[in-house]
Each structure stands twice: as C-alpha cells, then as structure tokens.
C-alpha cells in the first residue's frame, strides 16, 4: 500500500521523497565475537515506523486563544460582538465541569460545520482589513504583493507550522490553483479568502 502511494504523491508534487538512507545496520547482536556467521542484517529504523505522539484535534480553548493571535486580534464573533468560542462552548463540546467534565475532541460534522462558519467569518474579516491596509507588510494573509507562492509559503508556515523552502512547492500548488480560480472570477481578495478558509479548516491546522 505504502509503496503504491508514494509514487502517486510524488507525481502529485505534494510529497518529497524522504532522503533516509538505511546505513545504520548491525549484525545479529547475539553473534559471538570474532568470526561471525552471516545471519542477515537488522534494520534499526524501518521506514514504516513513525515515532512520536498520537495526533489530536485542537480543543476549543486552543482555538479561542490561537485565532486572535494568528489574525491580529480578529476572532469569531456573533452579531453583538461576543466571542463565539465562548458563547458556543456547550455546542462545541468544551468541558464546563457541571454537565461535561472532559473536552470533546473527536472530529464530528458538527465541529466541522462550525469551523467552516468560523473560518468564513475570520478570513472574511482578515481579507477586508488587508484590503484597507496601505502597508503590504502589515497584511495578515498576503504581505507579499504579486508573489503568490511566497504568500502561500508564509501562510503554510503561519497556519500549519510547515516550512516550505524557496526551492520547493510542496503543498502549495493546489492552494495556488485555488487562489487563481477564485481570483479569476471575483478578484484577489476573494482568492486569499478562499485560501485562508482552506488552510484553517485543513487537518494540518486542526490537529497537533
């Protein structure tokens, strides 16, 4: 399965082949010293083993604190300006320690639906503010005028914590296509709005 997927991803231009070289080999460690019998090597780091913790979905509290930091103070609000991350705690499944003692962190259609709503509003506000910002470097989403890929690199690092080097387009080409498609129809601001929504509703943003 894995050997099938890898070429497919490479073709898609999304996945960079790992440069891992299985050089660290050792013989059968029970072999006595001196002249050894060849019993085959053991691979210390088989490439189908992934180390690290189990990924988790962001909690509501983490979103409540991170969205304003990423969007220069902008957050998800209702018509009266109240923070919806606070007014919707019951719906979004945050523990209140009266009826609920644990945060709900399972992915669900309900959570996804409200994250779409949240992204639509927050990104819309950011785009509006960027449109009024005379100094491009102060823009939230697109600080590099006329350089779509550079902006996307910036956003990939900002939202997903993934550094895409200058000589790479890993994970950027589809986003650029999204931007161009929307931009061609209704303009650059809508294009960045779509990219912003796509990125902050993506699993790379919603998990850690």
């Amino acid at each position: 399965m894995r050997s099938f997927l890898l070429p497919a991803l490479l073709v898609a231009g999304c996945y960079e082949a790992p440069t891992f070289q299985p050089t660290q080999m050792m013989d059968h460690h029970w072999s006595p010293g001196g002249e050894r019998q060849a019993e085959g090597p053991a691979l210390l780091h088989p490439d189908d083993v992934v180390f690290g913790k189990m990924p988790r979905r962001l909690r509501v509290d983490q979103l409540r604190r991170s969205i304003p930091m990423l969007f220069d103070g902008i957050t998800w609000t209702d018509a009266e300006g109240n923070d919806r991350f606070k007014t919707m705690v019951a719906t979004l499944g945050e523990a209140d320690y009266e009826e609920r003692y644990e945060d709900e962190t399972a992915p669900s259609p309900l959570f996804s639906k409200f994250m779409d709503d949240m992204a639509g509003q927050v990104c819309g506000k950011a785009v509006t503010r960027d449109g009024q910002q005379a100094d491009p470097s102060q823009r939230i989403l697109a600080p590099y005028p006329d350089d779509v890929l550079r902006n996307l690199r910036f956003l990939r690092l900002k939202f997903h914590g993934i550094h895409v080097p200058e000589d790479s387009t890993v994970g950027l080409l589809e986003l650029r296509q999204l931007y161009r498609s929307v931009q061609a129809e209704t303009g650059a601001l809508d294009g960045w709005n779509a990219v912003c929504i796509a990125m902050i509703t993506a699993p790379e943003f919603m998990t850690y």
Binding site: D116, G120, L175, V182, T186, A194, I197, A198
Partner: peptide, 16 residues
Amino acid sequence: GPFAPMNNVRRHLELY
C-alpha cells in the same frame, strides 16, 4: 452560517 463561504468561494473550496 451568515459568514460561511458562499458562491464561487464555496464552489472552488469544495473542489480543492
């Protein structure tokens, strides 16, 4: 919701 992505943004977003 009132601010959910709509129209062409929604269309291209879902395609993406």
